[in-house]
């Protein structure tokens, strides 16, 4: 299999060679690197893991080649809307300052909003799940206001808050907070009463019951809420950046569209996809770490 792959790999750069120099060289270098890795893989166990990726890398290469052929070579697709891959590489190289700025602005906004929303949601959820009084007062509000999409608050938020940045943070926090609250709450409410019985007979205080029994037992639910909240926060982030904050990848996306700079748009989209999937992966890692006791019990 490895031999077959290596036979295929060198094909690609030749294909690209005739088109755009820089991109082709990069592709060629990558292909050679992978080919070398493939050869090494025969001998070193360390590369065995990489081997699993080969079919995907191969498919990716095919896709890039097809894209290249359809856009740059044959011109089958209308040009301003569908630029060839090297145009996107060009944008990333030429406009990287603005893109990096955009990434930082987006990340800052998202992180602030998400952390506030997750924290507030978590605390509220625990409080509702634990205290009947808190539940009595907060539950109706949650039921009424919670299902409203956070973006519906957008006009009001930009009007009420002093800056569009703080308004966006509020919206992101809201979008994150609702699922985190509800799932934390249901997690705490669903803790087996036997867990409390045991701790109580061993002399646990209320504080101990909340911190050492209810919260750890509810953690799997909390993480479901955190995942949902993260998804929601991405959506709100992009909308808020497009409509309010004059910074970030969402704004860059719209700006690029306004100038009909479609290559820039694809570049921004690509980066956004990396950012979002990177954050989700990060959260998965955190979960696997905190809930390692759960391995083999439930995987979702």
């Amino acid at each position: 299999m490895v031999a077959a792959l290596t036979a295929f790999w060198p094909d690609k750069p030749e294909n690209d060679w005739t088109y755009t120099g820089g991109f082709a060289i990069a592709c060629g270098a990558l292909a050679v690197a992978i080919a070398v890795a493939a050869f090494a893989g025969v001998r070193f166990a360390a590369f065995q893991r990489l081997k699993r990726l080969f079919p995907w890398l191969f498919a990716l290469a095919l896709f890039l080649a097809a894209w290249e052929v359809v856009t740059a070579k044959l011109g089958l697709l209308p040009l301003p809307f569908f630029p060839p891959p090297q145009a996107i590489v060009e944008v990333v190289i030429d406009d990287w300052g603005r893109l990096v700025e955009g990434i930082f602005a987006s990340a800052r906004l998202l992180a602030t909003g998400y952390l506030i929303g997750a924290t507030v949601g978590f605390v509220t959820g625990v409080a509702i799940g634990w205290s009947r009084l808190v539940g009595y007062w907060i539950h109706p509000i949650l039921r009424f206001v919670g299902p409203l999409p956070a973006t519906a608050w957008l006009p009001l938020a930009f009007f009420v808050f002093p800056s569009s940045f703080s308004a966006s943070i509020f919206l992101i926090a809201l979008a994150t907070g609702f699922p985190v609250t509800v799932l934390t709450w249901s997690g705490v409410a669903g803790v087996k009463s036997a867990y409390y019985d045991i701790a109580r007979t061993l002399g646990a205080t209320q504080r101990f019951l909340v911190l050492k029994v209810a919260i750890p037992a509810a953690m799997p639910h909390v993480f479901v809420g955190l995942f949902m909240g993260l998804g929601n926060s991405f959506a709100v982030l992009v909308v808020a950046e497009m409509l309010g904050v004059k910074a970030g990848l969402g704004w860059y996306l719209q700006w690029a569209q306004g100038w009909a700079a479609y290559a820039n748009m694809y570049a921004a989209l690509l980066l956004m996809a990396f950012l979002c999937s990177g954050l989700i992966t990060l959260l998965f890692r955190l979960r696997d770490r905190l809930l390692s006791w759960q391995k083999g019990l439930v995987r979702w």
């Binding site: 036997a194 867990y195 019985d197 045991i198 007979t201 750890p216 037992a217 953690m219 759960q294």
Partner: peptide
């Protein structure tokens, strides 16, 4: 109490 069901904390 040692309960009928061991109920250890899974975490």
């Amino acid at each position: 109490v040692v309960f009928q069901d061991p109920t250890l904390y899974p975490w």
